[in-house]
Amino acid sequence: MGLLEHRLDENVLTTRIDWLINWARLSSIWPMTFGLACCAIEMMAVGAAHHDMDRFGAGAFRATPRQADLMIVAGTVNFKMAERVKRLYEQMPSPKYVIAMGACATGGGPYYKYGYNVVKGVDRVVPVDVYVAGCPPRPEALLEGLMKLQDKIRRSAVLRKPGLPEGALFVPAPS
């Protein structure tokens, strides 16, 4: 029948908890329905059929921060919006991730010098995991950003101490 048939004795699978948790997290990153400017149009293209973000388990755009894992800051963040962005981030349950999509969210973009109302990078308001370059970025660029985020989640430590090699559960006793 399936690929797994006769490969798992007694239907038992052994793995590391860290690997399992990270695998679960990176395989269903639900983004928040949230767009601020033209980057959001590209983000919608990524969610649509041709590029299909759902291949990475990240296609379920949630209409509330309380069900979202990922905030894609797609567009220009102005000071009036910055407070709302921060509040939305705080309403997301942990673990939560942020992608700064495009030049504006990364560092103010074309509004860096004369945009009196533009925040010079959303990382001044919320912590950013991945920056995606472009103005706006191609859909492929956002997909790569998503894969970079998956790599980051894959490396993250849930049970084992951060900084230890993968698989090591305990700090070795000092010799």
Binding site: F79, A82, E83, Y116, V119, K120, R124
Partner: peptide
């Protein structure tokens, strides 16, 4: 500065 966010 606006509400604690640096503007420069």
């Amino acid at each position: 500065e606006y509400h604690g966010i640096s503007c420069v």
